[in-house]
């Protein structure tokens, strides 16, 4: 065997083995993927980890944060109803780096919301955010997070108003904190308040997942509004003409609508013979409380507001 032959053979072996290794790695990922979601995964306590991390706790926090987001994202994609590891992961993240604000933001929404849009653990969310407040007393946004949870998921409007108020006292807090305190205190149970809170959340959130979530809520309000309005028009029509309108066309010809009404996703609303208005694809509109076609599962277990 001369040198050239050896070189060629070695290069071929190297290329093939590396290719094979990468392919095998992909297969390994698939096999392991089934195991990673198990809820019994051993997660060490944050305090222990912090000591073990030899001062690199910031990096480790980032790594756990990445895992938390990935964990939630994957499960959410599969419409899971159980997110058992979300709190532990966020807990570890914030113990390693108590100043990682985005973890509190994320946790306050996605821990508290009902499945499958969240873990459905609002009390844990509160615990997480309270710790954040302890560690970051100057961070007024955390009070807002607390207020959101209390108002939107726990329906404890007095506590929410108090949280917004406390937050508004911190130097640097935005003026709308005071507005939120007042609104929640006076108009706690009303739809408008919730809408206002979600709008605020949408504007202030940096994380794309949080923004997306707020958008979904706002769309739901829009849908609820639309359907109330449309059904009211239908009822009016019936009152005037004595019959159910056959389609929205009838309402258009009455001059009450300028075009066929569409939901925030662009799909046309459906008018049922009994006068109810339904959305076309309820699965894409979580959080709506009206307009769900009969027999369809609501995307989220609706809460009475």
């Amino acid at each position: 065997m001369n040198r050239r032959a050896i070189t060629v053979v070695l290069a071929a072996v190297a290329a093939c083995s590396l290719g094979g290794a990468v392919a095998t790695a992909m297969a390994v990922e698939r096999v392991r993927g089934e195991g990673l979601k198990e809820e019994e995964l051993f997660l060490p306590s944050g305090a222990v980890l912090k000591r073990l991390s030899l001062g690199y706790s910031g990096l480790l926090a980032d790594i756990y944060w990445t895992r938390a987001v990935q964990y939630f994202g994957e499960l959410h994609h599969e419409k899971a109803v159980h997110y058992g590891l979300l709190y532990p992961l966020l807990d570890i993240t914030t113990q390693l780096d108590p100043h990682l604000t985005v973890a509190y933001d994320f946790g306050s929404i996605f821990l508290s919301q009902a499945p499958p849009e969240g873990a459905g653990e609002p009390e844990k969310a509160v615990e997480l955010v309270r710790r954040g407040i302890r560690e970051n007393p100057k961070e007024w946004r955390l009070y807002a997070n607390l207020g959101y949870i209390q108002a939107l998921e726990l329906h404890d409007y007095r506590a929410a108003a108090q949280s917004f108020h406390d937050g508004s006292q911190i130097p640097g807090a935005r003026p709308w904190m005071k507005v939120m305190a007042a609104t929640t205190a006076e108009h706690g149970g009303e739809v408008q308040t919730a809408r206002y809170l979600w709008s605020r959340l949408f504007e202030t959130a940096d994380d794309p997942m949080l923004k997306q979530n707020a958008v979904k809520h706002l769309r739901a309000f829009q849908v609820d509004d639309d359907i109330s309005r449309l059904e009211a028009l239908v009822a009016e029509y019936k009152k005037r003409t004595g019959a159910e309108p056959a389609s929205f066309g009838a309402l258009i010809s009455m001059g009450w609508l300028s075009a066929a009404p569409r939901d925030p996703l662009g799909h046309p609303y459906r008018l049922a013979p009994d006068g109810h208005v339904y959305v076309q694809s309820p699965a894409e509109l979580p959080f709506i409380t009206r307009g769900i076609p009969p027999g369809a599962e609501p995307a989220v277990v609706p809460k009475t507001f």
């Binding site: 070695l10 290069a11 072996v13 190297a14 083995s17 590396l18 290794a21 095998t24």
Partner: peptide, 17 residues
């Protein structure tokens, strides 16, 4: 099985290079 194959292939690659 997969891990065995992976370790063998990757090692082979590193050694041949």
């Amino acid at each position: 099985g997969l891990n065995t194959v992976y370790a063998m292939l990757y090692s082979a690659a590193a050694i041949s290079v």
